[in-house]
Amino acid sequence: MDTARNLEAMHIDMVVIRHSSSGAAGFLAERIPSNVINAGDGSHEHPTQALLDLLTIRDHLGPISGLKVCIIGDILHSRVARSNIFGLLTLGAEVAVCGPRTLLPVGIEELGVRVFNRVEEAIEWANVLNVLRLQLERMKGGFVPSLREYNRVFGVSSQRLAAAPQDILILHPGPMNRGVEIDSDVADGPHSVILRQVTNGVAVRMAVLYLLAGGAPELAETAKGPSPGREEGAP
């Protein structure tokens, strides 16, 4: 709270906040007049990551509507997953998640996503895989027994992709644990658009800053999005 008051006292126009607590960006936005950009709050949301993921998918596959996108890995702790789910559903995609049940949030199906227990089924179904980083500390937390086993059961390998019925797009928000959630030959292979995500990330964040700084004022209100704390697209 004192942080917020200090920021306000400096008459800052824009704040970019990344915080370990879910809801922290909304908390700040409700208390200061500046534009607040959420650069990731706890396990809640990471909106610009979702925007750049959406842009990357659209660049390669066209309109989002109707596409099948599966997010693979630690959904429970992932802000990238939540923002992707809300964004993709809003734009009309079909969304699935896949990962060990210990790392899936309770009631995730009620958000309007399907759940695959086996990564093979996810690969068979999806047009796009968004592979999440497995935080190494999850093993100590008892969520998965070992990284080796995680790779064997849930890792995205070229062998598994070979069984895919269609051309599939591979995203990863980075940084990767090569050999854990994704094998190097997939990360560096023909399906991967991981470096395109990084490039698009610069463009998306420039656009967000530009709009909120007052460029294209006719778009600015839209760019500010819904009121803080509540996500558009959550059914």
């Binding site: 879910s22 709050d41 939540r82 949030p105 009631g107 995730i108 958000l111």
Partner: peptide, 15 residues
Amino acid sequence: NEGLVSSRLGLRGKP
């Protein structure tokens, strides 16, 4: 509470 709301908010829940 652990449930849909906690999942949506990205908060850990108590079942």
